[in-house]
Each structure stands twice: as structure tokens, then as C-alpha cells.
Amino acid sequence: MLTLDKIYHASFVLKEVIRPTALIKSPNLCPGVNLYLKPENLQVTGSFKVRGAYYKISQLTEEEKAKGVIACSAGNHAQGVALAAAKNGIKSLICIPDGAPISKVEATKSYGAEVCLVEGAYDDAYEKALSLVEETGATFIHPFDDELVIAGQGSIGLEILDELPNVDVVIVPIGGGGLISGVAFALKALKPEIKVYGVQSSGAPSMLNAVKKKQIETLDSVKTIADGIAVKRPGDHTFELVEKYVDEIVTVTDDEVSTAILELIEQQKMIAEGAGAVALAAALFHKVPIQNKNVVCLVSGGNIDVTILSRVIDRGLQKAGRLAELIIELIDKPGQLLGVSQIISKLGGNVVSVFHSRADVDLDINACVLRISMETRNQEHLDQIKAEISRQGYKIVDVK
């Protein structure tokens, strides 16, 4: 059974390995909200996962330690297990989905773990890990559905209350549910009136579906940039704890997550991965009631692949109306491109690229198409430019 004593014990044990992640006050992110970030993206290994992994491994018997540990992970749990095993002087083998970011795979190896890449998603890696446990007799370190792992993650709840005793709302990402189970249990045990909201990707709503239907089901597939919470099936223990202690679960889209990542970069100079930004996305897009309240958004991890980061930034800029491509149908005569460019320039837009073509077969014979990418201040500014282009007689066919 998960108990508050176990969470306190975990907090004590973890002091020797984790990095303190003090709350960061961030009122500018959400006007009218006294918002704080819990920056677990700054944690050792770049994620909260080291907490549960280390506490679980620290409690193994000497006989269990001698046989080593096996885990499965999309990346963050892998690094936590690898580091925890190394600090305890034991072997670790991690099964990772082959689509996980290269940076997470290489980081896991750097902590001394052996890595087994498995074709498919997290759940495929899970099945492979279980088969290897049968073969080797090693101890399986579950990424979320284990009471000691959950207790380790619950230490975050104690830290939040210690630093912000008058907290009203805590928003937490949900994948398999280990993080929110521990955090919600600790918070509700010490201050039951605190509201705890969970956030999933709209492309991987496994826990939300389970709570709605009051039974666990396995999703056929998951699709999200938040790979750290792309879990097809939540845990049995975590499902029970979430049902009991979490007030509500909401979802956010990939575009909303991209916007949150961009906001963290620009406003806080902080890098978060997709899963790490979902809590802030829920706050930014008003998914939960937080106006005039003391709110903590848990930024659970920062291990985003740099090759993905640039695409995410572009998506965030597009979502915020700060980067757009206008497709405009023009009459094929001199001065048309100049006319459009002058409108954008006078209104303060910045042209990034231009593509001009007569080759589209769907156009009139005397027409051409202009694709013009530009940077703008915000959605209102973009709308102003679009309205002026239309007012001066140019036909906007599409906006991307």
C-alpha cells in the first residue's frame, strides 16, 4: 500500500541524488493567475523520473541487486534507471522504442546502461522487457505502476507544499499515471482542498478514457509530440489512485503543446519536451479553472530532441499567429507582388520567403499564385494584414 510515510522516506533517501528544483514564479505566462513552475526539466537526467527509479532501486535486496535491473521507457525513465543503477553499482538493461529521440537513447547509454531498441511504441518495449526478465531473473523497474516508484514521484508533492503552503491548484502531466498518483496522494493527504488536475495529449488519452469508462482499456494507437506520455494503457495501481485523488483530467493538442514550449523558451528561457509542457498548455488554453489562484504547473522533463525542437518552435509560432504563409491568387501583370509586399511592409510584417508561380493548373489562364511566408507580432497583427490585403482587392486562397 502507498502511504505518506513511504513518500516521506523516499524524499529523505532522494536527498543524496536529486537536484533541488525550486518553484519559479511566472506571472507573465498567464495574466490573472499567480503561476509557478516546478522545473523538473532541470532535474538530474532532465526529468522527474530519476526520483521513482532511484527510490525503487535503493530498496532492492542485495540478492536482487546482484541480478541487475531491467526497465522499459520512451527515454526519461531509462535515464533515471540507468543513473540509479550506476549509483548503486548494479547492471541495467533498458528496452526503448526505436522511435524514441536519439538524444534520450544516447543519454541512457552515457549513464552506463545497456540499451535494447524495440520496434514499435512503449507498450512493445514493455513486452520485450518482461520477456527478458523471465530469461535473466533481473528485477523489473516499472516506469509508473509500482508503489515505490510512485512514492518517489510523490516527493514532488511534498516539495511543492513546503515551498508554497497556500497553493490552490497543481497541474500535472499524465502518461501511465505514476507522477500524478504520487503527487496527488501526497497533496491530498496533507491538504485535501488542493485541486489536482491531470493533463494528457489528445492523441494519447488512455487515463482519461479509463476514468470516463471506469475501466482500463488499451488504446489501439497513440500519436503525439509528447512522446514521454504516449502510453496506450495506464497502470492498475495508478488508475485506482487517479480515480480517488485527481479532480479532473483534460487534454491538449500538439499545437497547444508547441505554443507552451515556445512560451517557456521565450518567457522563462527554459527548454521543455512535449510531455513537460502539457501542464502549462492546459493553463495557457484555459482547460482548467485557475483565475486568481495560486497555481503550480509541473514541467516534468526537458529531454527534447534538438532536431524536433525547431519544428515545434515553428508550430508554436504558427499557433500564436506569429508565423504564417499566405497563398494569394494574383492577376499575372507587373506590380502585383510589389503591391502585396508594400501592404505587409507598411503594417510591420516581415517577409521570410516568397514563391511565385504560373504553373498551377487550377488557376485561370491569366492568373498566378503567390506563396508568401511572413513573421507577425501576434494573431491580431496577422488578421490586420490579411484584412488589408483583401481590402485592396487581392484574393487570399489559403492561410497556413
Rank of each mutant, 00 (worst) to 15 (best):
157 G>P: 14
309 L>E: 08
78 A>H: 00
111 Y>V: 01
364 D>K: 14
296 V>H: 05
29 L>H: 05
378 N>S: 04
105 V>H: 07
308 I>P: 00
7 I>N: 06
132 L>C: 12
305 D>Y: 08
213 K>Y: 11
88 N>R: 09
21 T>F: 06
312 V>E: 05
102 I>H: 09
118 V>D: 00
285 F>D: 06
335 G>Y: 00
85 A>L: 02
288 V>H: 10
285 F>G: 06
69 V>L: 05
201 S>K: 04
254 D>N: 14
133 V>L: 10
201 S>A: 14
343 I>Q: 04
57 I>W: 04
365 I>F: 12
327 I>F: 03
161 L>M: 14
83 L>E: 07
34 N>A: 08
103 S>M: 15
114 E>Y: 06
295 V>H: 08
50 V>F: 06
341 S>G: 11
270 M>S: 02
225 I>N: 03
314 D>M: 12
256 E>M: 01
210 A>W: 07
346 K>V: 10
184 A>G: 13
20 P>G: 09
32 G>H: 04
82 A>Y: 01
85 A>W: 00
171 I>H: 11
196 V>W: 12
333 K>G: 07
352 V>C: 04
58 S>K: 13
256 E>S: 00
194 I>L: 11
353 S>L: 05
299 V>W: 04
164 L>A: 13
267 Q>D: 10
144 F>A: 00
398 D>L: 02
381 H>V: 07
80 G>C: 06
232 K>T: 12
192 P>I: 12
393 G>C: 08
148 L>V: 13
325 E>Y: 03
222 V>H: 01
225 I>K: 01
75 G>Y: 03
17 V>G: 09
44 V>L: 15
100 A>P: 12
298 L>M: 14
109 K>A: 09
144 F>Y: 01
203 G>C: 07
211 V>M: 08
296 V>L: 07
115 V>N: 08
38 K>E: 04
201 S>H: 03
41 N>I: 12
154 G>I: 04
208 L>N: 02
32 G>V: 08
249 I>H: 07
110 S>A: 15
280 L>V: 10
89 G>N: 12
391 R>S: 13
161 L>E: 14
306 V>K: 09
89 G>Y: 09
7 I>G: 05
288 V>Y: 10
203 G>K: 06
306 V>P: 09
137 G>S: 10
157 G>V: 15
262 L>A: 11
246 V>S: 04
41 N>C: 15
289 P>D: 13
218 T>Y: 04
208 L>T: 11
244 K>A: 03
19 R>G: 04
124 D>A: 04
395 K>Y: 09
279 A>G: 09
53 A>N: 03
289 P>M: 10
20 P>V: 10
21 T>N: 14
177 G>M: 02
16 E>Q: 14
239 F>G: 03
335 G>A: 00
17 V>A: 11
155 S>D: 15
212 K>P: 05
356 H>A: 04
23 L>S: 08
141 I>M: 00
106 E>Y: 07
219 L>G: 00
213 K>T: 15
336 Q>H: 03
211 V>R: 08
360 D>C: 03
186 A>H: 11
112 G>R: 01
